[in-house]
Each structure stands twice: as structure tokens, then as C-alpha cells.
Amino acid sequence: MDKPLKTPPPYAITSVDHALRAATMLQLEGSLTVTEVAERLGVARSTAHRLLAMLVYRDFAVRDERRVYRAGPVLELATHSRSLVSRLRTAALPHLHRVVDLLDETTNLTIRTGDTARFIASVECHRSLRVGSREGMVFPAHRTTGGLLLLAELSEEELAEVYAPERYRDRPQDRPDLDRLSRELKGVRKGGFAVNRNRSERGLVAVGVPVRDREGRTLAGLSISMPGVRYDPHDLQSLVGTLQAAARALGADLAATAT
């Protein structure tokens, strides 16, 4: 069994975690107010203001004349990339909340960049035993449900380019077995969904489906994550059906905003 990729530190520093999450929000979405950051982090406005002030001081953020914060020189992304991620996240959040209401499991939206998958939105469920928010986290694409869904869209040549041996010269242990991965991705393409058991974290099961644009291209992966003790394979068809309905609705919303 693979070892877990993300293990929380035994002595987590909440203020550091909040600052990093705030920086990630700015990097992914472009601009936010103090109130928006406070609400997203679940902290007081005064706390959010202090966090943002430190990010500005260290050039992770800048504040404009309207007191709106955006990514600073250290974090700034290309405008097109940032706006696409922001549009995806904004359109997806109502659907993620709806899935949580229906299934009561943590729900995520994931995009792929090269051989990594980034969680751009995450809504936690209401159960005491639950998978925490993954928003802003980055994992190897082949170890996540959303990553598998997005890799499944690639041709054999494109997949080989993503995992070209020269890209892993300094970390050959991180390169997946391409033959095995290719076989798995064929199953994902055929079934239209992916199931992740213990690949990104021991004791975690995730089920996901692709979110497609009007041309049928996969833009993101929509998934739920749950403790493995709660997963019943007999429920898989129902889980996939709920996710596919949400993914279709999200795709329709994206198409509408693009016109």
C-alpha cells in the first residue's frame, strides 16, 4: 500500500495555515476583500486583516485603492489562467454545496497542471467523522480521483509526454508505471468515473466524474471524499449518478456564462 502523501504536522500552527490558505485563495481567484477572506477561513475580520497585511508586507499580496486584495509579485499568475480558475470555482460552489446536501460527504473540484492535480474548491460535509477541506492542495495527478479523470482525456502520446523520463531525472521514484496507469485510464474513460482507494491518503476513498464543456472536453474533476469505513461499493452507482447530474448542471452553467 502506498504511504499517505499529506500528513498534517503534529504541531500545526493555525495562523500559518490561515495565511497559506489566504495566499492560495488570492493566487487562484485573483482578488478578495477582508470580509470574504474572513468568511472563507472562519475567522474574525480583524484576524483576516492582520493576515492580509503580513501577506502584503512579504509581497504575497497587494491592496488596491478600493481595499481589495489580490495576488502579489510572489504569487501572480497569468490573467487568463486566474480568470478561468475563478470562473470554474464560482460556478462550481453551488453545485458542490448541493452534492454535500444530498450525500453528506466532502465534495471537491480539481484541475490538472502537468503531472499535478490542484483542488480549487472544497466543501466539507456535516458529519463529525469526515474528510477535511483539500482546497489549495496539490497532489500528483495519478494519485487523485480528479487527476485520473483529467489524465484519462489524454492520448497515449500526450500521456507519455506528461510522464517523460527526463522530467523525473531527479526523482525517478515519483514516476508512475505508464503501462499500468494507461490500463487504468482506459477503464476510467470507459466507465466515465474514477474511484480512488487509499491512493492519496490511507483510509480515504474518493469517487469522481468529469466536468465537461460544451465541446465535450474535460475541464475539471468533481468528486466526493469519505472515510473508507463509510464506503459501500453497492452505493457506487448511486454516488456516480448524483455526481454526474451535478457535473452536467455545472457544465451547463459554465456554457451559459461563456456566451
Rank of each mutant, 00 (worst) to 15 (best):
R67N: 15
A71W: 02
E65W: 11
G30M: 05
A252N: 08
R40V: 12
E135G: 03
A194H: 00
K186N: 13
A258E: 14
T259I: 09
D170I: 12
R112S: 06
H126A: 08
P140S: 13
S31T: 14
A152N: 07
E76Y: 09
V100F: 06
P4F: 01
V99F: 14
F193L: 10
T79L: 12
E158N: 08
E157K: 09
R169M: 02
V188Q: 04
E76P: 05
G42E: 11
S238V: 14
L77Q: 11
E157M: 03
R183T: 13
V211F: 04
I120R: 00
M54N: 13
R89L: 06
L149K: 01
N198T: 10
S155E: 07
L51K: 03
R70M: 03
S225P: 03
A141W: 00
P172Y: 00
R217V: 13
I120W: 02
N198F: 10
P176T: 00
A12E: 10
P4Y: 03
L93R: 13
H142D: 13
E157A: 07
F139K: 01
D59L: 05
D17M: 12
K190R: 15
A206H: 03
A252K: 09
R248G: 06
F193K: 05
V162I: 11
N198K: 06
S155F: 01
V74S: 06
L96M: 07
G30N: 04
P176W: 02
A160W: 01
H80Y: 07
P233E: 13
G30A: 08
P227Y: 10
L185N: 01
V162A: 07
E184R: 15
M137Y: 15
L185W: 04
V123Q: 15
L109T: 00
T259L: 12
R21G: 09
R45N: 14
G216N: 08
D104E: 07
L204W: 11
L20H: 08
L5I: 14
A164C: 12
S83H: 12
E166D: 15
F119P: 02
R248I: 05
R50H: 13
Y69Q: 13
G136R: 05
E39V: 08
Y168Q: 06
V205K: 02
L219C: 12
A53W: 00
V37H: 04
S128V: 11
R183E: 14
T259G: 14
R21S: 13
M25T: 06
A12H: 08
Q173M: 13
A141K: 00
A22V: 05
H80M: 09
T24F: 06
L102G: 06
P227G: 08
